[in-house]
Amino acid sequence: MKLSELFEQKKFVVTSEIGPPKGFHLEKILHEAEMLKGRVSAINVTDNQSSVMRFGSLATCHFLKDKNIEPVYQVVCRDRNRIALQSDILSAAAFGIENLLLLTGDHTKLGDHPQAKSVFDLDSVSLIHTVKKLEEGVDIAGNKLDGEPPRFCIGAVVSPCSEPLEPQLIKMEKKVKAGAQFFQTQAVYEVDKFVKFIEKAKQFGVPIMAGIVILKTVGMAKYMNENVAGIHVPDSLIEELKKDKEKTKSGQTGIEIAARLIKELKPHCEGIHLMPLGWDDKVSKILDMAGL
């Protein structure tokens, strides 16, 4: 099922995310994914997230399909040139994978192979353009594909709380023009900033799913404020995490904050994308509390 069909039916779409392991034993993440079955419309599978070498996103998506779980195949431009990217995306079509999330990707220097070459032959915009070309029955060089062309639902990302916001909007517009059909956002902790972003982004007419990352610890919040682009965890939330150490340790504070953010963001967007970063067992509880 393409996510675009759900948006067309005016459904409020919820997705979550799993990260493949460093190794090839998938029991744990497939179990996590199964726990979310029925609670979310699809599950994103990250592609060597944070430039750390892991099990492949495409193969994980294939295993999810086998379990009747709808995957969103994340593809980044860091590790493969245009030939390999197109080849893998055609492979995804053969596996029946219909939803893609196309990103530029972090630089290799940020990960566990800082010596590796960063490819970036294409970027998020030109990758979206490339998939549109494949859908038209030609590759990016204009060569004809054999047989029926593939059909995907193309997702992209945007960072709604970035400062300055204008470059994000310019790039978002470029992605929409290239063929993006929905957006999942960077984690949102500032609802007022998100609302201001939506006021400007709604002109593009594409569904936007607000990103939610569960706050696990005070340290995590501070780390993100220092190091992660487009994220600012306000002091009030950091105070909330500090207030009851036991409650925060058990995950309860993070769950409450995430559920509250979802409730506040819901009237302003078309869906929610949860990034539990290993806390997959908390997702159901968050959705319960948020009334989803």
Partner: peptide
């Protein structure tokens, strides 16, 4: 641009500084 991108910023910069350095 550390990534040599042609179609706009990657979204990785924080306070105007590159994610790489």
């Amino acid at each position: 641009c550390s990534k040599g991108l042609l179609n706009g910023s990657c979204g990785g910069a924080k306070n105007g500084k590159c994610e790489v350095n």
